[in-house]
C-alpha cells in the first residue's frame, strides 16, 4: 500500500520562475492495485513519481509505503520498496555496462552489496531464462553492451530488471512514450504480464486515454498538482475515451486542440 497525504512541492521558490507543482495532492493505492495516471503536460505526474521514489523530497505532506513513513528517506534506501522504469530508455539502464551487469545491478536492488562476485553462474542462468521470455534473442547477448540495444529492447529489459526483486510499488513513467507504436504495444503487453504474474502494485503514467482505460484497475487524473478524477470498478468499465476526454476538458476549462494526440 502507498499513501500520499497533502503533498506540496514548489520548484524555485521565491524566484520569478517559482512553480508550485504539487498542491496538496493526496492518493492512496491499495496493495495489488494497478493505477493508470493521466493529466496534461506539467500537471505534476513525473514529480509525483519522483516524490514517491525519493528522487526528490516534498516540501510538506507525508508519504507512507505500507506502514512505514518514507517522506524523508533517500531514494537508495527506498529502492527495496520502489521499482521504476523511466520514460527515457537511457535513464533506466547503465550505459557502458553489459546486459548481464545491468541485470545484476537490479538483482541486488534493496539488498546489501558485498565483495562477492556480482554475477554468479546461477544468476546468469536466471537472467538468460528471463530474457528468453521476451523472445527478442537477448538471451544470447548477455555480455553485449546495453547501449547496443534499441529503445524498445532497453525498456523491455528495464521492465525485467524492475521485476527481479519484489517491490511494494512499481512506478512506470510514460515508459512507452519514446517507442514506435508496435514496440510500445509490445512493451505495454509485457507490462501487463509482469504486473499480473508478480501481483504488483503499480502506477503507470500515460499520455494515452485509451491506454489509461484499457490497462489496470483504476485511473486517476492529475491537474495542477492535485487528483481531479479517480475512477475504478463498474464506473470505469463503462467509461469511454470520449467521457474521459470530456472530463479532461472540463477540468482544463478549455478546448483541447489536438484530440488525435490524446485518443491515440
Amino acid at each position: 500500500m502507498m499513501r500520499a497525504e497533502q503533498l506540496f512541492k514548489t520548484f524555485n521558490p521565491g524566484t520569478p520562475i517559482e512553480n508550485p507543482v504539487l498542491r496538496g495532492l493526496s492518493l492512496t493505492i491499495e496493495s495489488g492495485q494497478f493505477v493508470t495516471v493521466i493529466g496534461s503536460n506539467g500537471a505534476g505526474k513525473s514529480t509525483l513519481l519522483n516524490a514517491i521514489s525519493g528522487d526528490l523530497f516534498v516540501d510538506s505532506g507525508s508519504l507512507h509505503i505500507d506502514d512505514q513513513d518514507v517522506t524523508r528517506m533517500p531514494a537508495w534506501q527506498r529502492a527495496g520498496m520502489v521499482a521504476r522504469v523511466f520514460q527515457d530508455p537511457m535513464a533506466g539502464t547503465c550505459e557502458g555496462l553489459s546486459i548481464e551487469e545491468n541485470m545484476a545491478l537490479a538483482w541486488h536492488r534493496g539488498r546489501s552489496r558485498g565483495f562477492g562476485r556480482a554475477i554468479r553462474a546461477e544468476q546468469r542462468e536466471l537472467f538468460r531464462d528471463k530474457l528468453a521470455m521476451l523472445k527478442l534473442g537477448l538471451e544470447n547477448r548477455l555480455a553485449d553492451r546495453i547501449d547496443l540495444l534499441s529503445g524498445g529492447q532497453r525498456q523491455a529489459v528495464s521492465l525485467l530488471m524492475a521485476s527481479l526483486q519484489p517491490s511494494r510499488i512499481l512506478l512506470l513513467d510514460e515508459h512507452t512514450a519514446a517507442l514506435d507504436p508496435k514496440t510500445a504495444a509490445f512493451v505495454l503487453e509485457l507490462t501487463d504480464r509482469i504486473v499480473q504474474e508478480n501481483k504488483l502494485t503499480a502506477m503507470m503514467v500515460t499520455h494515452s486515454m485509451r491506454q489509461a482505460l484499457d490497462h489496470g484497475h483504476r485511473t486517476v487524473m492529475l491537474h495542477q498538482g492535485r487528483v481531479v478524477l479517480d475512477v475504478s470498478g463498474d464506473e470505469r468499465k463503462q467509461m469511454q475515451v470520449s467521457d474521459l476526454l470530456a472530463m479532461f476538458e472540463k477540468t482544463r476549462g478549455e478546448q483541447i486542440d489536438d484530440d488525435a494526440l490524446l485518443l491515440g
Partner: peptide, 8 residues
C-alpha cells in the same frame, strides 16, 4: 540516478 534507483 539509475544507481540510486537500484539501491546504491
Amino acid at each position: 540516478r539509475m544507481a540510486r534507483a537500484q539501491g546504491v
